[in-house]
Computed example of a mutant assay.
Amino acid sequence: MKHGNDFDKHDNQASALGDFLRAARERLAPEDFGLSKGQRRRTKGLRREEVADLCGISTTWYTWMEQGRTTAISVATLAELATGLRLTEAERAYLFQLAGRTDPALPHEKHEGPAPYEALVAAIRSPAYILDRYWDAIAWNQAAAKLFCDWLVSPLGQREKFAPNLLRYVFLHSNAPNLILDWEERAWRLVAEYRADSAGLRHDAVHQALVDELQAVSPVFKEAWRSQKVLAREGGSRGFLLPKEGKRFYWQYTLRMAQQNEIKLVVLHPQDCDEGFY
């Protein structure tokens, strides 16, 4: 049984979704869709039945959504609404968020090259690196290269067969279990975090190839992936055993880029801050 707060939360969510749909509809110009503005139009923008027709859904169903009577909207319908209402990328993301759904269409990558990210991580003194949607490292600083010398080894302009991928390193490199304290626990958590992070990549060929490769080679990854565990990529203490320095502990911060949500900046700040380490 749902408590009063649960009903209030659902009602507020449905109301916010309805308000957003109505505002999006009212700002559309009929003439932009080949429709006559007409003398008898009493509403701003398009009529509900016109939007419903553009989106390929019934007028009744659209009306219910706009009136805040439901949030049980399929991903396919949300995608049709985004297209029919001509939403921007940010508006589409907001629509899916209001409906509590994951958008299967990730934002298009902006091919700006690694230079802006290299400048960002270079300005950070602690080990820092940037991951893309597949958890390939696309930029890192010298402190990160020193900490992860077995992973971040390829010069950025001279890739080998693969870009430095965090999952490939953790599960396939022989030295990863020696470097990462509590390796198996951390490895299982990484898989659960990647599953959550890649929810929108279910039909992505690159993502599926990576998962298939790791399942074929790593029994630990295969078991962890099939467990269906999901965790948010959060911060916390991370321990490493370095050959010369011994055990070192860092506090991990993971930040997402506002312009490209699938890009993550990871910073490891030393808990036992030793200026001589840098």
Rank of each mutant, 00 (worst) to 15 (best):
W151T: 08
L181T: 11
K264Q: 14
P155K: 03
R125G: 07
A192K: 05
A199S: 10
R86H: 13
N12R: 14
W251P: 00
Q142P: 00
R168V: 01
E112H: 04
N5K: 11
A128F: 06
A209K: 13
D53M: 12
G56L: 13
A14K: 02
Q158G: 00
N165E: 11
L179P: 02
P114R: 06
E118P: 00
A232H: 11
V51Q: 04
Y134F: 12
S218T: 13
A205R: 10
R41P: 06
C55K: 01
Y62P: 06
A199P: 00
A29G: 00
P114I: 12
D136P: 05
F96K: 02
E112P: 01
I124S: 07
E223K: 15
A16E: 13
L214M: 09
W251M: 03
A123P: 01
L214V: 04
H108C: 00
G84H: 05
A76K: 14
M65W: 06
N5W: 01
R22F: 05
A99K: 00
Q158V: 08
P177M: 05
N165W: 03
L265K: 01
H108S: 14
C149W: 06
T254L: 08
P243V: 04
P104N: 06
V217I: 15
S154H: 13
E31K: 01
W151C: 08
K222C: 14
E275Q: 13
A23V: 11
H207E: 03
F240E: 06
Q252D: 00
T70D: 10
Y117Q: 05
Q13D: 13
L106A: 15
A93H: 10
S227Q: 09
L255P: 05
P127C: 07
G18W: 04
A123R: 08
R195H: 09
E118S: 03
L46T: 08
L166P: 00
D19V: 10
V267P: 02
G200V: 00
V153D: 05
R101N: 08
A119I: 12
Q39Y: 11
A93I: 02
